[in-house]
């Protein structure tokens, strides 16, 4: 199957320096934060690649890179083989990708009617005119489980789940092939989350959509993904078929994450005895040398503290870990 999106050693840095004047006065230099560090992946048509990680791991930056909101600092992102920087210049290609955001209360302009929100991409790309726009909006609203009459209302008249449906209708209006979903359900309650996840999978099957799905919630990830990338401090540390990673996590960080999820099965039993992994994510402005996970890693040795691990093939999965490579895992 052809890849819809491919990222090749993509990095993105942000300038986090103080303002120019303060910098001159205190004679300090520029500082930059490497949010995404040589990330590579590809997403075959009609499948879902998920990225999981904790806050500051760079997953949302990857999401924004993938729709061209930021240009990469180095590396290349290709949409159907075409570099995104040139693809973004062509409305015909831009039309084919869109994004769903995390917070349904912030992602819809409160001063716009729903019909105008949903029709915005249609109008921006000049796809339809006049009454055809209204018909298409009605059709899109029905497709996501709302009524065409809802178009005349304002966002504040809807619940969080309904707003996320509006967001999805907007994302689908320009008939895209590829959707980036940045934590689409983490602001929703569980019963509503199930509705939205079901809807997204239905739409994927029906419309042949390709998803890049970002989340910190492993249960949601497992439900949605074909392939999975686990991110830590800007790098993908483990990458492969989702089921393979869930059944046999190899990277110590993946194991820590899976172990940390509070589990329904624990109910009534004795509290699970957790692996003694503590610590917190270090600042991405000054990441640790070597493997960035080594300060929290139970398997870390001297090599991990100085040498940055490359990817090792372990079964169907790629892992960036010296311990796995050396068979210490």
């Amino acid at each position: 199957m052809a890849d819809v999106l491919e990222a090749v050693k993509v990095s993105r840095s942000f300038d986090v320096s103080k303002p120019w004047l303060q910098r001159m006065l205190s004679r300090s230099g520029r500082r930059s934060l490497r949010a995404v560090d040589e990330v590579s992946f590809s997403i075959p048509k009609g499948t879902t690649l998920s990225l999981v990680g904790e806050s500051g791991c760079g997953k949302s930056t990857v999401a924004r890179l993938a729709v061209g909101l930021y240009p990469p600092s180095s590396g290349d992102i290709r949409f159907e083989g075409q570099s995104l920087s040139s693809a973004r210049a062509q409305p015909a290609l831009r039309r084919r990708m869109n994004m769903i955001f995390q917070d349904p209360y912030a992602s819809l302009n409160p001063r716009w009617r729903v019909q105008d929100i949903v029709a915005e991409p249609l109008r921006a790309f000049g796809m339809l005119r006049g009454s055809a726009v209204g018909d298409r909006v009605g059709q899109l609203l029905s497709q996501v489980g709302l009524s065409p009459a809802d178009g005349a209302k304002y966002p504040h008249e809807f619940s969080g789940g309904q707003r996320q449906r509006i967001s999805i209708a907007r994302a689908l209006s320009s008939e895209p092939d590829f959707l980036v979903c940045d934590e689409p359900t983490s602001a929703l309650d569980v019963s509503v989350q199930a509705q939205i996840l079901n809807l997204m999978r239905e739409l994927q099957t029906r419309l042949g959509l390709t998803y890049l799905f970002i989340s910190h919630n492993l249960s949601v990830i497992r439900h949605m993904s074909d392939r999975l990338g686990v991110m830590y401090l800007g790098r993908i540390v483990e990458h492969g078929p989702a089921e393979a990673i869930f059944t046999e996590p190899r990277h110590p960080y993946t194991r820590l994450l899976l172990d940390a999820i509070p589990d329904l099965d624990a109910a009534g039993g004795v509290g699970r005895v957790r692996a003694g992994v503590g610590g917190e994510v270090p600042s991405p402005i000054a990441p640790p040398p070597g493997c960035t996970f080594h300060p929290r890693c139970p398997l870390a040795n001297d090599r991990c503290r100085v040498e940055r691990p490359d990817y090792t093939q372990a079964g169907p999965v790629e892992v960036a870990c010296h311990a796995v490579e050396e068979g210490r895992g």
Binding site: G160, V190, S191, V192, N198, L218, S219, R222, D265
Partner: peptide
Amino acid sequence: EGLMASIPALRARVDRLAQIDGAMPR
């Protein structure tokens, strides 16, 4: 019952989550 069934499980994957339609009333 509906609430518990709608939580995606970490240990297994299903094709479709059980869902409660609608939303809690205001």
